[in-house]
């Protein structure tokens, strides 16, 4: 397709090469302001298809302790949207991976959404993930994002009903992102079935690729659902890996 979204295209490219698309998430300014862009370039080098850059927020309610700590550490170092956009403008020209900014709504809102869309796109971002901006609340902005060619990527969960998946599909997103954990207790087999069922529903609802994320730490976890997933996102596992002083490239290569 001529006018296929760039992020959709990245995922299709990976699939055409017979593998899942790899989407690493790194909080901006992690492990330090100085090293962050090197980590991004290293991930790009190692074959990341899309890189999610986390925009720090003081109160990240959808994240676990690992991401929250990284987020607060970034804030202490003075990481903000301006710094991210500036660095992105410098570093994105040579990169192959698609770029997504992932952050809570308030910092975007205070920056000004129109301004953000314009500047982020110009700097090389291709999409936004905003975990606390659900369907009803994103509607006022969706046309403006489209105008700026900035994709809005919806997050859906194991508890999102099929009708609502369809409503999200109506936004025509570049890809959909299924959050795989809820802390739902029960047998492993039960959890796998729940996940399989939801992935199947998501594939029915969305025309676009479906990515799976949250709580992925080993490749084995993918086995039972391999056939239903187009892309995988990793956050906490990568952060912990980097925190041990290990290389981003090694981490990604272990997933290829």
């Amino acid at each position: 397709m001529d006018n296929e979204n760039i992020l959709t295209g990245k995922i299709h490219q990976a699939l055409n090469n017979g593998r899942k698309a790899l989407i690493p998430f790194v909080p901006a300014g992690f492990p330090s302001k100085k090293r962050f862009w090197d980590v991004v370039l290293e991930l790009d080098d190692a074959g990341a298809d899309i890189i999610e850059i986390g925009v720090p927020f003081s109160d990240p309610v959808a994240d676990g302790p690992v991401v929250e700590k990284a987020s607060l550490r970034a804030l202490e170092q003075g990481v903000n949207l301006e710094w991210i956009i500036e660095g992105l403008a410098e570093n994105s020209p040579g990169m192959r991976a698609g770029i997504v900014l992932m952050g809570y709504f308030n910092p975007f809102l205070q920056f000004g959404l129109q301004d953000l869309a314009q500047k982020a796109r110009k700097a090389g971002a291709n999409g936004l993930i905003i975990p606390d901006l659900i369907l009803e609340e994103v509607l006022p902005y969706i046309d403006m994002f489209k105008e700026h060619d900035l994709a809005y990527i919806p997050l859906v969960g194991l508890n999102t009903p099929p009708e609502r998946l369809k409503n999200y599909a109506g936004l025509d997103p570049a890809f959909a992102y299924l959050v795989s954990v809820m802390g739902i207790t029960g047998t492993r087999a039960g959890a796998d079935k729940l996940l399989r069922d939801k992935l199947t529903q998501a594939r029915e609802a969305f025309n676009c690729p479906v990515a799976l994320g949250f709580g992925l730490s080993t490749k084995d976890q993918l086995e039972p659902i391999r056939d239903l997933v187009d892309a995988v996102v990793f956050g906490s596992a990568l952060i912990s890996h980097l925190d041990e002083g290990k290389s981003a490239g090694d981490f990604l290569r272990s997933w290829r």
Partner: peptide, 20 residues
């Protein structure tokens, strides 16, 4: 708008909280 008082209010939560 549902859940709004003028321009204030709304439901700015992770999607996982929408069902409850």
């Amino acid at each position: 708008k549902k859940g709004y008082f003028g321009s204030f209010g709304g439901m700015f939560v992770p999607e996982l909280l929408v069902p409850p």
